[in-house]
Each structure stands twice: as structure tokens, then as C-alpha cells.
Amino acid sequence: MTIFRRLIFIAIADPTRRAMLAALASGEKSIGELAAPHAMSFAGAAKHVGVLTKAGLIERRKVGRHQICKVRPEPLREAQQWLHQWEEFWTMQLDALENALKAPPQ
């Protein structure tokens, strides 16, 4: 797994960051707007935004005194494709286990 992909999974492991990504799916938001639903300080939200930015999941731009964030879907698409291969593997493994458990004892 590349370091870039690893950073994506580290970023989305946190429920607050996942909620921020979900909020950005509807459009650009300031860091303050991302912080509001979580009752956290601007500094706390900025740390989460920093992790998301480092992972390449969002990009920021400055507008006056505000930092505006928007989602970058490409890294999520790459992570989803990587996960899909493992979904197929585990589906086959779990199907085999189910069949073994249903088989009559010998």
C-alpha cells in the first residue's frame, strides 16, 4: 500500500473527519462551518482539516480571513477501488465458510 493510500485510510478512520467529508459533499465550506456541528474549536477543526488535506482528500484556499475547503473525490475513488478487490476476496472466503458450516458432519 502506498503511503498516500495509507494517509487516506488514517484520515477516514476518524468519525469527525468522515462527517467533515460528508458535509463537503454538498459543496465548499469554511473551517468554521465544518467545526460547528462538532462543538469544537477552530483550532481543533483546523487539525482535522490538516489531516484531510495531507491525505489529498480536500483542498483549501484562502478567501479573505477564511479558509474554504472542498472535497477532492479522486483519492476516495482510488481507495474504493483498492477496497473492492478485498471485498471480492472476503466474499469468496465467507461464502466458503458458510458452505462448510452448512455441510452435514462427516
Rank of each mutant, 00 (worst) to 15 (best):
T2K: 07
T2M: 02
I3C: 06
I3T: 04
R6L: 07
I8T: 07
F9P: 03
F9A: 08
F9H: 01
I10S: 06
I12K: 05
I12R: 01
A13P: 04
T16K: 10
R18Q: 05
A19F: 04
M20L: 06
M20Y: 00
A22F: 06
A22Y: 10
A23S: 05
A23T: 01
L24K: 03
A25E: 01
S26M: 01
S26P: 03
S26R: 05
G27C: 05
G27P: 03
E28H: 00
K29G: 00
K29A: 02
K29L: 01
S30N: 02
S30Y: 01
I31V: 14
G32M: 08
E33Q: 04
L34S: 08
A36Y: 13
P37K: 07
H38W: 09
A39Q: 13
M40I: 15
M40A: 08
M40S: 10
S41L: 08
S41P: 06
F42N: 11
F42I: 07
F42C: 11
A43Q: 11
A43N: 15
A45P: 10
A46D: 07
G50D: 09
G50E: 08
V51C: 11
T53C: 10
K54P: 07
G56P: 04
G56Y: 00
I58L: 01
E59Q: 12
E59K: 04
E59G: 02
R60G: 06
R61D: 04
R61I: 00
V63L: 13
V63S: 15
V63I: 15
H66W: 12
I68C: 04
C69A: 12
K70V: 00
P73Q: 06
P73D: 04
P73T: 01
E74A: 11
P75R: 03
L76K: 10
A79K: 02
Q80H: 13
Q81A: 07
Q81C: 08
Q81M: 12
W82F: 11
L83A: 15
H84M: 14
Q85R: 11
Q85S: 10
E87Y: 14
F89A: 07
W90C: 08
Q93L: 11
Q93G: 08
L94P: 13
D95W: 09
E98Y: 08
N99W: 12
K102L: 09
A103V: 14
P104C: 14
P105H: 13
Q106H: 15
